[in-house]
Design a protein around this nucleic acid. Structure first.
Lengths: 216, 216
DNA sequence: TCTTTATATGACTGATTAGTCACACATTAA
DNA sequence: TTAATGTGTGACTAATCAGTCATATAAAGA
């Protein structure tokens, strides 16, 4: 969706534009984010930006695509081939996703922001419904393998699991006293959470999925 | 937070201002919502609005307070006194909340929007953390009564339940083919969901909380 | 050298905004 | 009637925005 001119740019400049745009769009919703501020920070002329992208909207859509692809690629590359158990597979996925977020707080907070910005009808590609669909496909398979109880509503379960997969970031943030989705402020990019701590939380979450909380 | 002048207004005018402001703030985030549009629709002068409220921010804060109080009052008044079982109590609460949303789609979508608009630091009163705190107090009580398994992390469980209580609206919307949080468009205010259908979904949700989904 | 093509630029436009203010109008009290 | 107080008004300000466009610069080809 960018024009060819954008891809002809030296990589350094191209990446600078992407990074600075992400900073703007990760802290402000689409309508509030300012192209004027972006070009000022990136030290390029307003007109140049319009040599690269048709509009603010095209820039935004490109960023969503760019970051989503990076994240999916990262997650896919960290999955084992032969995981037959749904809950173990889910743990691998969500662990990889969390690792990605921790290592790329800017990308993470951007995507989180995009997910919330649903008041702009033609922009909200509905990230959540894609995610729910994906979880559902895994869950149906698990259901057929007998890993899920026969009385479970798979649609509802997919919904719950995919939404909680996003929300859990908030929980981790609260628990370790920082704002998970605005870590870019901290500059260092270092998250004060170890792999062990992360794994403990995921184990508890998955136990909730498996057994619930009632004392029956 | 409004000035005295606002309360001196005839009820009809006061309510018109509130309703039209809510329409604006329920479809747009704070920064994007336009006071100019509000006064135009409400057919009052810009200057008048500033006789009633110090600023756009004060109007917004008043609306949040106004609607939150209405919803809490409604929920509180529909709860039985003597519900000892956490899961049954929770069902009553969330059922009442859903009923409120269905009967007041404008209020509902406004609060939902407020919850998502977290990029404005000094505005986000963090509705979710209040809600989580409330669920936790119920859960601790249930824990002490032996209704919750001893190995459950009550903090995580409170978090999960309070977030899902909000998210479930999306699920209901998807399931019945409408956008739960933008029903005001439909004008009628009528939700195409019966008490029975609502109850079925809540029963499934609560069953997830109680037993999880694993075939153990 | 001259011409063509690609890229960079920033002043400008027209639209929109939150908030202001001088003034008008209404109601009550003296 | 006059004064005081409370309320309504809409033109105005200064800021900001997305997007445009005439012009400048640079590189490449003839």
């Amino acid at each position: 969706m960018p024009k060819q001119t954008f891809f002809n740019l030296p990589a350094e400049k191209r990446e600078r534009i992407i990074e600075i745009s992400l900073e703007e769009f990760s802290t402000k919703f689409f309508d509030v984010a300012s192209l004027s501020k972006i070009v000022e920070k990136a030290k390029i002329a307003k007109g140049s930006m319009y040599q690269y992208f048709e509009s603010k909207k095209e820039l935004y859509k490109y960023l969503v695509k760019y970051v989503s692809e990076k994240k999916l690629l990262y997650i896919n590359s960290s999955l084992p081939e032969d995981q037959e158990d749904f809950f173990l597979l889910y743990k691998d996925i969500i662990f990889a996703a969390a690792r990605f977020d921790i290592n790329h707080p800017l990308y993470s907070s951007f995507l989180y922001n995009v997910g919330k910005d649903t008041n702009n009808p033609d922009l909200s590609k509905n990230i959540m419904s894609d995610s729910t669909q994906f979880i559902k496909s895994l869950l149906v398979e698990a259901y057929e393998k007998g890993q899920i109880r026969k009385d479970v509503n798979v649609d509802l379960a997919s919904f719950i699991i995919s939404y909680l997969s996003v929300d859990i970031g908030e929980y981790i943030g609260n628990k370790y006293g920082y704002s998970y989705h605005s870590v870019l402020q901290s500059q260092t990019g270092q998250m004060p959470v170890t792999d062990k701590q992360l794994e403990d939380i995921l184990d508890e979450l998955i136990d909730f999925f498996k057994r619930g909380i009632a004392n029956i």
